[in-house]
Amino acid sequence: MSNLLNVSPSPHEHGQETTRKLMTGVIIALIPAFLASVFYFGYGAIIVTATSVISCMLFEYLIQRFIFKKPVTITDGSAVVTGILLAFNLPSNIPVFIIIIGAFVSIAIAKMTFGGLGNNPFNPALVGRVFMLISFPVQMTSWPVPKGFATGYTDAITGATPLAIVKEGLKNGDTIQQLMAQVPGPAQMFLGKMGGSMGEVAAVALLIGLIYLLVKRIITWHIPVSIIGSMAIFTTILWLINPDKNADPMFHILAGGVLLGAIFMATDYVTSPMNPKTMMIYGCGIGILTVVIRVWGAYPEGVSFAILIMNAFVPLMNAFIKPKRFGEVVKNG
């Protein structure tokens, strides 16, 4: 039997890429940001990340094993990525039970109810995050001030994020110029010395991750560039119209979760569009919605909501926006 020749349809050669390798690549790209968060927020960051990753993997395992009764595929790394991204969206002093609830929502509700990897319309980590933000608003918005590695898990001093300071200040009638004095300068923000979610603060670490993802061809440039580009253009217009009431584009891009969202969340394979043209539209949508929520919305930060809203449009865009086929005859000429 064994000496019979195999016959299969072409191609007979297969690339070395696997789902697992791609997910491992994303995890590697997230390491700089993780190190930065440990550097700024102490071992609380390790506790939060570990809890999140372990509970995400555990929920995925339990559901696949006992509800789906199918082979367990937690080794493909997608649950790990979800876990890390969920942790990166949380403050580093959040109680463990909330993380577990968030992980449950991410995996069980946002991913597994749709059939598991590849079928979920919304980014699981973001669904978990938004669920937690709405359910536990106090714990989710008490941001520890980055104090360095020695900070304990629960004794951190909390403060507001730059975006919250600006939002609050503008409501009280302060001008941007006054408020800019209260928030860290661009250089500090670039390095991550500001309040915020664990993973989002250090722009420099996230950019290192982006370079790794691009070099390894795990993602293409379309989504991050279109998000950041559209935000830059939109905020510049607002800033030029009224520089007293609108922050400059540099501030908008460095503050909050724009870079984390643009590089790691919006580019999630499953929930992002399938062709470059649609990716650009999707990215621009996220960029503009984020600014709209930040400037006119109730929340100081809008990246999560913007990505989730655009996720909802992805199937529609995939169905109606088609790439130009090779040899397509242009109708009128």
Binding site: E17, T73, D76, G118, V270, M274, N275
Partner: peptide, 8 residues
């Protein structure tokens, strides 16, 4: 394995 919609 399931399609992860990576668009490759």
């Amino acid at each position: 394995e399931p399609c992860i919609r990576c668009a490759k």
